[in-house]
């Protein structure tokens, strides 16, 4: 369970990233956060694994206030919170398998990892993860030889190998074309259901949010302005969240792959 209690975040340059956010994200939920760019979606998601640190309030992950976490405790928090990025963030010169195994680093001793001594279980877990996103035939290809959609699938496999309790996905489909976007979202949804991993996804495409989310959280100017089940959401709701009429660019289009 992730709980935001009166969380605010002010960046060193004075920009307010989050303003008094109160949220509870329950086990197994698939939450999509929507909002225009600059609305604080990224800040919200990144504060959960402390890539950015909230400056006020309390942020509880499994009933622990993470805002004071440092060193070992911070790493153990991050071990159970996996993350997927807009730019995939793979090591381009390393092969796919090494990239996926990197998801195990938090569970592996420093010395062992320096000699690539991953246990047999870790290696088979990594291979299983590759199979789950149907990219196992690229196992020894260099990451930069893959297309964007394939790279994002490798990064999903990396997160799966981490065996997280939560997955955070920061604009996972913003760099992809419509069919690939649907494919990636379908994998995320499937993993959420099969492994019961709580998933929080940032999106700015309203049609995709409505299609995949259990629950939608709308943000504007660092504040949560909407929070409700996806079934209660209509275009009207989005117009309220965005503060303007819906345009073509707010829709991803395409159908499920």
């Amino acid at each position: 369970m992730i709980e935001f209690k009166n969380v605010s975040l002010t960046y060193p340059n004075g920009t307010k990233g989050l303003k008094n956010v109160n949220l509870t994200i329950n086990e197994g939920e698939f939450v999509v956060i929507v909002g225009l760019s600059g609305a604080g979606k990224s800040t919200l998601i990144r504060s959960i694994n402390k890539l950015v640190t909230a400056t006020e309030g309390e942020l509880l992950v499994d009933n622990e206030n993470i805002l004071t976490h440092k060193g070992k405790r911070l790493r153990s928090l991050r071990t159970k919170v996996g993350m997927i990025f807009q730019n995939y963030n793979l090591v381009k010169r390393s092969n796919v398998f090494k990239n996926v195994l990197a998801g195990r680093l938090g569970h592996t001793g420093t010395l062992r990892s320096l000699f690539n001594l991953f246990s047999k279980e870790d290696r088979s877990l990594a291979y299983e993860s590759l199979k789950r996103v149907n990219i196992e035939e690229k196992i020894y290809n260099r990451a930069d030889e893959l297309s964007g959609g394939q790279q994002q699938r490798v990064s999903i496999a990396r997160v799966l190998t981490q065996k997280p309790k939560y997955i955070l996905a920061d604009e996972p489909v913003a760099s992809l074309d419509p069919p690939t976007s649907h494919q990636v979202m379908t994998y995320l949804r499937k993993i959420n259901q099969e492994d019961n991993i709580t998933t929080v996804v940032n999106l700015h495409f309203i049609d995709m949010a409505m299609e995949y989310a259990d629950r939608i959280i709308g943000m504007r100017a660092g504040e949560v302005v909407f929070d409700g089940p996806a079934s209660e959401v209509s275009e009207k709701t989005f117009e309220e969240i965005y503060g303007r009429t819906i345009r073509e660019g707010d829709l991803r289009g395409g159908t499920e792959a």
């Binding site: 890539l51 790493r75 991050r78 381009k92 990396r158 981490q162």
Partner: peptide, 22 residues
């Protein structure tokens, strides 16, 4: 490219591991 470093840190890798892998 700093992106892979961010990914390693976000997955709980320590500094030495991050340097060695990213």
């Amino acid at each position: 490219d700093m992106n892979p470093l961010e990914a390693m840190q976000a997955s709980g890798a320590n500094t030495i591991q991050t340097i060695y892998y990213a």
